[in-house]
Design a protein around this nucleic acid. Structure first.
Lengths: 164, 164
DNA sequence: AAATATTTTCAATAATTATTGAAAGTTCTG
DNA sequence: CAGAACTTTCAATAATTATTGAAAATATTT
């Protein structure tokens, strides 16, 4: 299979993955396109490759930059902007985990924490549920924070140890 | 704050959480309702509590059963079905992780694996990306499998150790 | 087996989310 | 600073996803 064809399939698969996890399909497609590209691409090239409008391309490129997954790249002599994605898969995973935690986990955890403090404990089972959830998320958050702070090797080594 | 009010907020928060992670909001709301209920509920009670139609209630209850998060409960003397959700948060997390992996991760990983085998390696950077992804997902899958198989205490203890 | 209770299905509709494209805004160049 | 190149915004529209409600199917009782 030709590399170009494989890239297309990869872009489609990555787009579906994002889509099924609540992320705009175009956003993840652009991300996949840039990850699999050997050079930085302009908005035009992205529009062309994915057959999308300028507005759509622009919005989703901005979102990717906002997520810290894509960076602008200035090319000497060129007037327009070029974009490139990081290719270190551990760094990418770290970044996505971090952003999702910030955007789509923390707000809910804050609600649970507040309810735990404020609810009148009429139903002991419900009180227990809130307590257990807090304990669980505290542990999970610690793991994720370690993952965030750590360099790849540290976390990797620990993981291997955990699995042995 | 009254327990009933806290439960309502919890249901809303859990619904939003599901929604932002690509899960039907009604499905997660029903799950939250059942988790926070001290007794098994009938379809009517769920419809009433969440102000949803019978069809919607039925479909999402089935989905929750399919995900292994909710079970039917027969109540002596009652003709209709009652439903209850497991309340062990570690078990719930394990179940959700397992289902999501099966439904929304594995299909993509299969594509990546196939591409890695079949692509012609014209672009070394792209070949590396596929390889790195496979390595990453293999590690992640191992961790998740351990999490699946393990009892709570085993994983918990290891996690504490990992963090210390 | 007819009447009744309950569950399931699914076409129609509603609600949400994504996309377009053109106008407005910005930055650069001669 | 005028014009050209490029980027951003956003109202209109399209596409997708969720929900309803009533009919069909199934199960239970008399």
């Amino acid at each position: 299979m030709k590399s170009a064809e494989a890239k297309k399939e990869f872009i489609e698969a990555w787009g579906s993955l994002g889509s099924s996890w609540g992320i705009n399909r175009t956003m993840s497609s652009i991300h996949a396109l840039l990850m699999s590209s050997s050079k930085a691409l302009s908005t035009e090239e992205i529009m062309e490759a994915l057959k999308i409008s300028r507005g759509n391309a622009n919005m989703n490129i901005r979102a990717l930059i906002d997520w810290g997954l894509v960076k602008k790249r200035f090319i000497p002599g060129e007037r327009k902007e070029f974009f490139e994605a990081g290719k270190d898969i551990w760094e990418i995973a770290r970044q996505i985990a971090s952003e999702r935690k910030k955007r789509e986990l923390s707000p809910v955890l804050e609600v649970i924490e507040r309810l735990k403090k404020e609810e009148d404990q009429t139903d002991p089972e419900f009180t227990k549920l809130l307590g257990d959830m807090q304990e669980f998320t505290t542990t999970l958050t610690s793991v994720m924070d370690r993952f965030q702070q750590s360099d790849r090797n540290w976390f990797f080594k620990r993981l291997i140890k955990l699995l042995s």
